[in-house]
Design a protein around this nucleic acid. Structure first.
Length: 413
RNA sequence: GCGCAGGUGACAGAGCGGUCAAUUGUAUCAGACUGUAAAUCUGACGCCUAUCGGCUACGGAGGUUCGAAUCCUCCCCUGCGCA
C-alpha cells in the first residue's frame, strides 16, 4: 500500500518531491506533469513521441471514451495497450464534463476565469426539446444533474435520449478502461454559483465519493477523491476535511475558479489532506500556476495547455509562449528554443520549418509543436524536482518567473 | 475579324437601381486557450479619425436617374469557341 513516498521537502514551503509507484510497476517522480490524452490518445502523438517527450503520466477521460466506445467498452483492451504507454495512466471520472458541457457553457466560464469570447454552436430543435423535457432551461447547457448522477444531452453526439453517468457507472467504466489511477465522480461547480448551490453540490460530491469507494472492486487501481467547494473558504476546508478523511489513495483538488482564488483554494485544502498521500491539482498547468501549486504542496498537475496550444501554434519556452505562425519566423533558422533537447529541436526542425508546416496545414506541424511543448513541460518539472532536492526551490521559482516575464521584451529564446 | 462569357477591395468570388465601404472564403494582423464542445475560437482588415464623422472606391470615359457596383453608349482588357 506504500505506493507514494516523499523523498524530499523544501524547508520554507510545502513543496516536496516524491516517488509514486503504481501497483502494476509504473513509477513516477513528482512533482510531475500529466499529459492529457482525453480519448485514449495524445492528439498528434504516437507512442514513441510520447515517450521521447519524457512523459511520465497521461490522463484520459471516462466520459469521452464511454461515449466513443459504447457497448464495445466490455472488450476494451485497456488504456495501456491503447496508448502503448507503460508509464502511469489516470482517468478522469467525467465529473469535469458535468461542468464543461453544463454550467461552463451556460455561465460562459472556463476552468480558470471566464471565456474571452462566446462559442455558440448550432443546436437542433430535437436536442433543445430533449433538454427542455429533461428540465434544462438554458439552451447551451447540456447537462441535467441530480443526486443520482448526471444526464447528458450532447448535440455533438446527436443524442436521441439522455445519456446517464452515475458515480457507480463512472467507477465501473474506469475499471474497464484500466488506468492505474482513477478519480471519484464529482460535480465541478461554476464560480457563478452562489454559496448555497456550491454547498449543495459539494455535499452531493461527498456522497458520490462514498458511492465510488463502495463501488470500486479492482484492487490494482488507485482511487483519488476530489475536493470541491468553489472559492468559499469554509466549504473548501470542510470538503478537504471530509474527502481527506475518506479511505482514498490520493486526493485531487477540483473546481473552476479565478486565477487569484486558485492559490487560496489550494491553501485552504491542502492542510486537511493526508500529508503522506499524493495530491493532484486538476486541470491546472501554466508555468506560474505549477510553481504556485508545488509551493503549496501539490504533487501532480494535468492540463491541456502544452498539447492544445501546440496545435494552435503556441510554442513554449522558459521565456513564455510565442506564436510560431507569425510571419517573422518564416526565415528563422533557430531551433524552437535555444539548447532544447526535444525530439523536434534535435530533429532539426527550425522555427522557419515549423512555420511553413503550419502554413501548409501539414499534419506534422501539430505533432512537432506538441512534442516540443510536452518535452518542455516535462523537463521543467524535472528541473523543479532537482531544485527541491538541492534545497533551491524558492530560488528556482523566482528565476522561472523572472524568465517568464522577460518574454515581454524578447520571446526569441 | 465574328460569336459567347467576363472585368468588384491582397486573392478567390457574391451582389445586379437606394438599406453597399460592399455577403462569404482565403491570406494578413492582433488576441484567447488551464480535470479537451478546441489541429479551435474571437476581433481587425480602402484612407483619415480616440469617437462622431468625413473622403475615395466595384476596368476607363461619358450618360440616364432624386439616387448606379448594379441601366445605356463608346473605349480598353481577359477567357473560350469559330475563322
Amino acid at each position: 500500500m506504500d505506493f507514494f513516498s516523499i523523498t524530499g521537502r523544501d524547508k520554507n514551503t510545502r513543496a516536496r518531491t516524491g516517488i509514486l509507484k503504481t501497483k502494476d510497476g509504473g513509477v513516477v517522480e513528482t512533482p510531475s506533469y500529466v499529459v492529457v490524452g482525453t480519448r485514449g490518445a495524445v492528439k498528434t502523438l504516437n507512442s514513441h513521441d510520447i515517450k521521447n517527450s519524457k512523459t511520465q503520466m497521461i490522463i484520459s477521460n471516462t466520459y469521452h471514451l464511454f461515449r466513443e466506445l459504447g457497448e464495445s467498452i466490455e472488450h476494451f483492451e485497456g488504456l495501456h495497450k491503447k496508448l502503448e504507454f507503460d508509464g502511469v495512466i489516470m482517468t478522469d471520472s467525467g465529473g469535469f464534463q458535468v461542468f464543461s458541457l453544463g454550467f461552463s457553457r451556460e455561465h460562459n466560464v472556463s476552468k480558470v476565469g471566464f471565456f474571452s469570447h462566446k462559442k455558440n454552436g448550432f443546436i437542433g430543435d430535437a436536442i433543445l426539446a430533449l433538454r427542455a423535457k429533461a428540465g434544462i432551461r438554458n439552451k447551451k447547457n447540456s447537462v441535467r444533474i441530480t443526486n443520482a448522477g448526471a444526464w447528458f444531452i450532447d448535440e455533438s453526439y446527436g443524442d436521441k435520449h439522455p445519456i446517464v453517468l452515475t458515480p457507480e457507472m463512472s467507477i465501473e467504466i474506469q475499471e474497464q478502461l484500466g488506468a492505474d489511477i482513477i478519480l471519484a465522480f464529482d460535480e465541478c461547480t461554476s464560480p457563478k454559483h452562489g454559496y448555497w448551490y456550491t454547498t449543495w453540490a459539494m455535499n452531493r460530491t461527498h456522497r458520490w465519493a462514498l458511492r465510488c469507494i463502495k463501488k470500486k472492486k479492482n484492487n490494482s487501481q488507485l482511487l483519488y477523491g476530489i475536493v470541491q467547494g468553489g472559492d468559499f473558504e469554509d466549504l473548501r476546508k470542510r470538503s478537504a476535511k471530509i474527502i481527506g478523511g475518506m479511505p482514498f489513495d490520493g486526493f485531487a483538488i477540483g473546481g473552476s475558479f479565478g486565477k487569484e482564488e486558485m492559490r487560496n483554494v489550494i491553501d485552504w485544502s491542502v492542510p486537511y489532506l493526508p500529508d503522506d498521500k499524493p495530491r493532484h491539482l486538476l486541470g491546472v498547468g501554466r508555468i506560474e500556476d505549477i510553481l504556485d501549486g508545488v509551493e503549496r504542496g501539490i504533487d501532480t498537475f494535468d492540463c491541456v495547455i502544452p498539447t492544445r496550444e501546440a496545435r494552435h501554434g503556441g510554442i513554449w519556452t522558459r521565456f513564455g509562449r510565442y506564436d510560431i505562425k507569425k510571419t517573422k519566423y518564416l526565415d528563422n533558422n533557430e531551433p524552437l528554443a535555444n539548447g532544447c533537447m526535444c525530439p523536434t529541436c534535435i530533429g532539426g526542425i527550425t522555427r522557419g520549418a515549423l512555420y511553413r508546416l503550419f502554413k501548409e496545414k501539414d499534419d506534422s506541424a501539430g505533432r512537432y509543436a506538441t512534442m516540443h511543448n510536452v518535452f518542455f513541460f516535462n523537463t521543467f518539472m524535472k528541473d523543479l524536482r532537482d531544485a527541491i532536492h538541492v534545497g533551491n526551490f524558492s530560488e528556482f521559482k523566482k528565476q522561472s518567473l523572472s524568465d517568464l516575464n522577460s518574454n515581454n521584451r524578447d520571446e526569441s529564446r
